[in-house]
Amino acid sequence: MAILVPFFQQLTGINVIMFYAPVLFRTIVITGVVNVVSIYLFILTVDKVGRRFLFLVGGIQMLVCQITVGTLIGVEFGTSGQGTMSKTISSFVVTFICIYVAGFAWSWRGLGWFVPSEIFPLEIRSIGQSINVSVKMFFAFLIAQTFLMMLCHLKFGLFYFFGGWVVIMTTFIFFFLPETKNVSIEDEVSLVLA
């Protein structure tokens, strides 16, 4: 979990949005509001609804948004990447990117740090968390270095590429992450290790 959760967290495509979307959102304040609201919702709900549920619902929300954005951009620009986007379509793209960022913020952003930190016994928690951080930083670097090349080759398919990873990571969580809602941290460690 200390390796795969941060690995999948980086392959959600959030870094692509966060690295390159500021140009798109320079005049839009809503993304900051969406992030603040999402973090607040995460804090309020993580123990009430459970980690696994938040992972799964966030994954579904991000997948729907990525497929929608990829399709809208594909319909507007095709494989040539030439043309202009209508105001209506660009409004939909911005809306779905904001919904995507919100889905990431209230699920995978916090849980990508939270779950790996709580699954280890106290004696080795710092080692487990250092593995978690190392994996995150390595894949953030790798995505930042390869994004432009991938964009040139995949064009709108880049959203489908990251959407495929969201399907894989959500399936992984569904089958392998036990629910830890209302479980003490000592019992949680043995539940995850079982």
Rank of each mutant, 00 (worst) to 15 (best):
L4M: 08
L4F: 11
L4P: 14
P6N: 09
P6S: 07
F8H: 11
Q10F: 00
Q10G: 09
L11G: 14
T12H: 10
I17C: 11
F19N: 15
F19Q: 14
V23D: 15
L24M: 06
R26H: 13
R26L: 04
T27K: 12
I28C: 05
I30V: 02
T31D: 02
V34A: 06
V36Q: 00
S38A: 09
L41R: 00
I43W: 00
V46I: 10
K48Y: 09
R52S: 03
V57L: 14
M62L: 06
V64S: 10
I67K: 09
T68M: 08
G70N: 10
G70S: 11
T71E: 05
I73Y: 07
G74Y: 05
G74R: 08
V75I: 07
F77E: 12
G78H: 13
T79H: 14
T79M: 06
T79L: 03
T79K: 09
S80N: 08
G81H: 14
T84H: 12
T84S: 14
S86Y: 14
K87D: 14
T88K: 06
I89T: 12
F92S: 05
V93A: 05
V93G: 03
V94H: 15
F96Q: 00
I97S: 13
I97W: 01
C98M: 07
V101P: 00
A102K: 00
G103Y: 03
G103Q: 01
F104L: 03
F104A: 02
A105W: 00
A105K: 00
W106V: 05
S107M: 03
W108Q: 02
W113I: 01
F114D: 02
F114C: 07
V115C: 04
P116D: 09
L122D: 01
R125C: 07
S126N: 15
G128F: 05
G128T: 03
Q129S: 11
I131G: 04
I131Y: 12
V133Y: 12
V133S: 10
S134F: 15
K136A: 08
K136V: 11
M137W: 11
F139C: 06
A140N: 13
L142H: 02
L142Y: 12
I143M: 06
A144G: 15
Q145R: 08
F147S: 10
L148F: 14
L148V: 07
M149H: 06
L151A: 12
C152G: 11
C152V: 09
L158T: 03
F159I: 01
Y160F: 08
Y160Q: 06
F161T: 05
W165P: 13
V166E: 15
V166N: 15
V167G: 07
F174A: 12
F176I: 04
F176E: 02
P178Q: 08
P178M: 01
P178F: 01
E179P: 12
T180S: 11
T180M: 03
V183F: 08
V183L: 07
S184L: 14
I185R: 03
E188N: 11
V189K: 14
V189A: 11
V192S: 15
L193A: 09
